[in-house]
């Protein structure tokens, strides 16, 4: 009754491992670029909603409602399949013949950046609001302008306070890159699916897939905890 005897882990590893290694690269690339852009999107939305002009605030609020009210998977599908069609259709109505296409990875990263940017903007906004107004006043009376004060004095303190929360979003994003399989990004899940359907090593393949995600996310989440600990002990 040896269950391992019934399975072919070493053989599956031999063929799947190189493919997963490539998948790692895709996941890391999508996460790094996606997270970087999401942070920028988040900062922009947070600042826009705090200090922007009324119509901009309303627009950003609407965007937030849409993004938070729909699943990431639907957003990815929308960006990858619908957006190019929509752009071509609208361009066509104005008499331009276009053939806009978007690569799977670009669509995937864009989806992650917008989705995570919206969620992260709320954290960033809370971080900015938590900074004592005295900091702003101190910078203003020294002759700094509004935006200089925001970017030189307030934002660095705000970001420092929310690094742990942003770190958790980073770990979540790594795992959510699996959704990119549905817009044909050749990441870990899609590679595993392909492999499993060709070889029928279904149990082995998906077990390796789970392990692959654990290898990425467990050390990272511990790193985030460590940074959180360092920051909280440094501020005392």
């Amino acid at each position: 009754m040896n269950i391992l005897g019934q399975l072919h882990f070493s053989e599956a590893a031999k063929y799947l491992a190189p493919s997963l290694l490539h998948g790692f690269g895709v996941v890391v690339e999508a996460t790094i670029i996606g997270f970087f852009l999401a942070t920028i999107v988040g900062i922009f939305i947070a600042i826009g909603r705090l200090f922007g002009w009324k119509p901009l605030k309303a627009f950003l609020y609407g965007l937030l409602e849409i993004v938070r009210g729909t699943p990431l998977l639907v957003q990815l599908v929308y960006i990858y399949y619908v957006m190019p069609l929509l752009i071509n259709l609208i361009a066509g109505m104005f008499g331009y013949k276009t053939d806009v296409q978007i690569t799977p990875l670009t669509a995937g990263i864009a989806g992650l950046a917008i989705n995570y940017g919206c969620y992260m903007s709320e954290v960033i906004r809370a971080g900015i609001v938590s900074i004592d107004n005295g900091q702003t006043e101190a910078a203003l009376v020294l002759g700094f302008g509004r935006y200089e004060t925001l970017f030189r004095i307030v934002m660095p303190q705000a970001l420092r306070g929310i690094i742990p929360s942003l770190g958790n979003y980073l770990v979540m994003m790594i795992k959510d890159t699996s959704l990119l399989a549905y817009v044909a990004v050749n990441e870990l899940l899609l590679r595993t699916q392909t492999f499993a359907s060709q070889t029928f090593y279904t149990i082995e393949a998906y077990t390796y897939l789970a392990i692959a995600y654990l290898i990425l996310s467990v050390p990272l989440s511990h790193l985030v905890k460590f940074i959180e600990y360092k920051l909280s002990s440094a501020s005392r």
Binding site: D132, G134, Q135, E137, A138, A139, L140, V141, L142, G143, G145, I153, P156, Q157, R160
Partner: peptide, 20 residues
């Protein structure tokens, strides 16, 4: 306003030093 603030400094009750 910036010129005014460069020429007229201010000290606050709660110091408001930049902690970082």
């Amino acid at each position: 306003t910036k010129r005014l603030r460069r020429e007229v400094g201010m000290v606050f009750q709660r110091f408001n030093l930049f902690p970082m």
